[in-house]
Amino acid sequence: MENDRKTYYIAVESGEISRSETSSTWSFKIMATDEEITELRSLFNQNYANEWKNFIRAHIPFVEYHHDNENNAIDEKLKTIYQAIHRLGDAQAKQHIEEMGILSEDPLA
């Protein structure tokens, strides 16, 4: 299975997954199988859908952030994305995510 892994470059902010190191600005380098990339792409797509829901909800001014389900969904999905990148990432990616302090004690949890 290790032989099936390919290098990918990830930009969390834009949801980009690229095989080219120079095609765009990226934040994390990972090694993943086709299946793992499909799962990561699905997480990014789910987060994008949540962001649209949040955009629509943002026009309802009386809902506070900490009572906003769409914001909670985005936060949880981003945490799941960072957990996946931590699991698949190179040493630098793992260190950066750990320094962000957004993961639970167990990065696979």
Rank of each mutant, 00 (worst) to 15 (best):
103 L>R: 11
38 T>Y: 05
105 E>C: 01
56 I>L: 15
26 W>H: 07
66 H>Y: 09
101 G>C: 09
96 H>C: 10
7 T>Y: 05
4 D>W: 09
85 I>C: 07
10 I>M: 02
50 N>H: 15
47 N>L: 13
21 E>V: 11
31 M>I: 00
89 G>L: 03
19 R>L: 11
12 V>C: 04
25 T>L: 14
84 A>E: 10
107 P>A: 10
95 Q>H: 08
59 H>Q: 06
5 R>L: 12
73 A>F: 05
33 T>R: 04
26 W>V: 02
58 A>G: 15
16 E>G: 04
8 Y>T: 03
86 H>Q: 02
81 I>D: 04
58 A>Q: 13
104 S>F: 09
58 A>T: 08
75 D>A: 13
55 F>L: 10
56 I>N: 12
68 D>N: 15
20 S>A: 13
60 I>K: 12
102 I>V: 13
94 K>L: 05
9 Y>N: 01
82 Y>K: 10
100 M>C: 09
37 I>F: 06
25 T>I: 15
86 H>K: 01
54 N>Y: 10
48 Y>N: 14
16 E>R: 11
63 V>W: 04
68 D>W: 07
55 F>Q: 06
33 T>F: 05
61 P>N: 09
52 W>Y: 11
91 A>M: 06
63 V>F: 03
80 T>Q: 15
2 E>N: 15
80 T>G: 01
30 I>C: 05
87 R>G: 02
9 Y>C: 01
71 N>P: 00
107 P>T: 12
19 R>P: 00
31 M>C: 07
31 M>H: 12
5 R>E: 13
59 H>L: 02
104 S>A: 11
4 D>H: 11
73 A>K: 13
11 A>Q: 11
97 I>F: 05
52 W>Q: 13
79 K>M: 09
9 Y>S: 02
41 R>F: 07
12 V>G: 02
21 E>I: 11
17 I>Y: 03
7 T>G: 02
60 I>S: 05
54 N>E: 08
95 Q>F: 03
26 W>P: 02
108 L>F: 14
92 Q>G: 01
45 N>V: 01
18 S>F: 00
87 R>Y: 12
1 M>P: 03
11 A>V: 00
101 G>S: 11
28 F>D: 01
83 Q>S: 15
37 I>Q: 06
23 S>Q: 07
2 E>L: 14
21 E>Q: 14
29 K>Y: 00
45 N>W: 01
10 I>T: 03
30 I>F: 03
54 N>V: 00
107 P>Y: 12
15 G>W: 07
105 E>R: 08
32 A>K: 06
45 N>E: 13
61 P>A: 05
9 Y>E: 01
23 S>E: 14
35 E>F: 12
18 S>T: 07
12 V>R: 04
85 I>T: 06
1 M>A: 13
75 D>K: 13
77 K>A: 14
43 L>M: 15
87 R>K: 15
51 E>V: 05
26 W>C: 02
73 A>E: 09
85 I>K: 04
33 T>L: 08
52 W>A: 08
60 I>P: 00
98 E>L: 08
37 I>C: 07
43 L>W: 05
27 S>H: 03
107 P>S: 12
63 V>G: 07
59 H>D: 04
107 P>D: 10
31 M>Y: 12
52 W>P: 00
79 K>W: 00
45 N>G: 03
101 G>M: 08
47 N>I: 12
94 K>I: 06
64 E>F: 05
67 H>N: 14
38 T>R: 11
27 S>M: 04
22 T>H: 07
83 Q>G: 08
1 M>T: 08
10 I>F: 03
8 Y>P: 02
6 K>M: 11
89 G>V: 01
